[in-house]
Design a protein around this nucleic acid. Structure first.
Lengths: 345, 345
DNA sequence: CGATTAAATCTAAACGATTAAATCAAAGGA
DNA sequence: TCCTTTGATTTAATCGTTTAGATTTAATCG
């Protein structure tokens, strides 16, 4: 074959029907197994399907049935290891449930997020799983108005009744990190590198951080709390900034995987040793945190569970099943390695 | 609002038309800017759109126009750092071109790949970017028959004329790795951990490895060449296996990111030092290879360029533009860090 | 003023499936 | 035998757009 022919010449159900000498209804019934059809007709339909290489047009189906069997996943960036894992787990479960997933990176940009929401709306997806972007949520109300599509929120808050939200216990997790720094290592000068408090996620982590300090009677030194954007570069810049201060903290709590790596990279560049010169602890979803130098002490989030739960709730929402529960909070695990100053491998 | 209403009650173009007191054609013309419409009618249409909260139904559009503005990306697993980057870059460019992307993980499983191909076919996507899964390609011919959808291959070969293929120079890249081990460090006992030779990708890397040894007159010792599957576990098992031999190699060439990390992890577990006990070099698309212990000497692939080029070629294919060139090969970069025995940072 | 032309709008036929409702055929019952 | 019932198949409306082509309206001109 010299080249693939252009579209628009595909075989339709109608042609199958003609070829098999039956009506379109019959073809539809045998393909979807939705009514009894005599063996004789059934086999001639099947033959025709085979001979013509018929592949049903799901667009037409969707138009008729109002179902696309496709959902959207909006995250800030799949390259963030946490969202990579989320995306993977959602795709896997979605596949097994007969759904496809369109992946959207909002890049923490409200405009891009809005555009994607409108687009997914127009594509009539069956539902959306939406992870946080910082800033106001006003643009979301547009999508959430009546007659709109099912949606579940991941680590993100919205003051609309009936929208399910799935999250981990960010506040408590942050607290445990800081507690560890204080209780086990006796650090008192503790800084933080956290994303914008405009997201629920970062706000909660910030609150946990502050609460831990307070509970030990330690002062919260605002000049040691850097709110960057939750990226590698954000962490990198934050650390450089922090190390430029007259008085430096002894330990730093870090509120996100990419920032953690950025911090680490900046540290290396400054020839500072971790944990000797400065101790680190925080959120990292890197599957390879233990291979880094030093092995990172981290909060481990149950990303897979989170993803599966989100999809489950979304699918319930799609099929109109009533939920008793609207908010779900999963627990995390604190994994102590070396970066905080502990010696375990 | 107590709860989002179920679907099926959305406002249609027809309703907009009635509300604005014009025909559906007129509404369509103003929405798509496809014919001149008087200011008077135009504004009343726009008003109606606004008041009713109309959002066009792209399913109906697609049915009419035979265009979905959606493409499919099939990779073995987005969690593989190389494909994460590919997915990200494709999504970004696709977005800017007005396309969405459905992501599919084949898990190197021919059945899953086949199912996805059929599904994407049924969904009438505009095109597919297909990365390799190992094994025979027979199932692909089904998708590639006449009247089928545009497709481009990433690092994957297929004997069908006119199917574009985009790849990096795998053979030469592997060769350079091994050359470095021999020329710079004088290693003579060199093993390899590579994926299944049933993929073009791994086959090329294998060939490069062998060719390098040959060109220095070194023997190819098959017991030191482990073909695992290209995963973390694959690398991990391969190394353990390799280290169980009576005579061990001094250095290992590794043909993939995840395997590289698996090898590293197994090494740590065995308390073997790299590069002192065993030197490593190979393909790793980890953005953070330099933060690992030791910093990895790697081939760096221009994933972003690869992704953008693939999409570009696919879009050309979709719009029926003739290509002069059907095969594209990009060059890689050898980045020397510490794992091979060099001392540079 | 009527004819001609151009401009703006509308009518209605697709696109490719699903599915109520209608039709047709055969069997069963009196 | 004729009527009823049941079962298998078909007819045709529908989903929400786009877009030729028909129609209407307005403008121009001899």
């Amino acid at each position: 074959m010299s080249s693939v022919k252009r579209k628009g010449e595909r075989v339709t159900l109608k042609e199958v029907a003609k070829h098999a000498g039956v009506s379109t209804a019959t073809v539809s019934y045998v393909i979807n197994n939705t009514r009894y059809v005599s063996d004789k007709l059934k086999s001639s339909v099947l033959n025709a399907v085979d001979e013509l290489g018929y592949s049903p047009n799901n667009i037409a189906r969707s138009l008729r049935s109002n179902q696309t069997y496709t959902i959207g996943l909006i995250v800030s960036n799949v390259e963030n290891p946490f969202y990579t894992e989320i995306a993977r787990a959602i795709e896997e479960k979605a596949y097994s449930e007969g759904y496809s997933v369109i992946i959207c990176n909002s890049e923490d940009d409200i405009l891009k997020e809005t555009n994607y929401l409108k687009l997914l709306q127009s594509k009539r997806l069956d539902g959306i799983i939406l992870a946080p972007a910082p800033g106001e949520n006003e643009h979301l109300y547009y999508v959430l108005q009546e007659n709109s599509m099912p949606i579940v929120l991941l680590n993100r808050k919205l003051d609309v009744e009936g929208i399910p939200i799935i999250k981990i216990n960010n506040r408590h997790s942050a607290e445990r990190c800081v507690n560890h720094l204080i209780e086990t290592h006796g650090y008192r000068d503790i800084g933080a590198v956290i994303g914008s408090v405009e997201t629920l996620l970062s706000k909660d982590r910030y609150d946990g951080f502050v609460h831990a300090l307070n509970s030990f009677g330690l002062p919260v030194r605002n000049e040691w709390i850097i709110h960057g954007n939750s990226s590698f570069a954000g962490g990198y810049k934050a650390l450089k900034h922090l190390m430029g201060k007259d008085k430096r903290p002894e330990a730093i709590f870090i509120g996100g995987s990419l920032m953690y790596l950025g911090v680490l990279s900046a540290l290396k560049e400054l020839h500072l040793k971790c944990p000797e010169d400065i101790a680190l602890i925080g959120f990292s979803e890197m599957r390879f945190s233990h291979l880094l130098e030093p092995p990172l002490s981290t909060i481990h989030q149950p990303a897979k569970k989170l993803a599966e739960l989100s999809l489950e709730v979304l699918l319930q929402q799609i099929s109109g099943i009533e939920r008793k529960q609207n908010a779900f909070e999963l627990e995390t695990e604190l994994i102590i390695r070396n970066s905080c100053g502990c010696n375990k491998m």
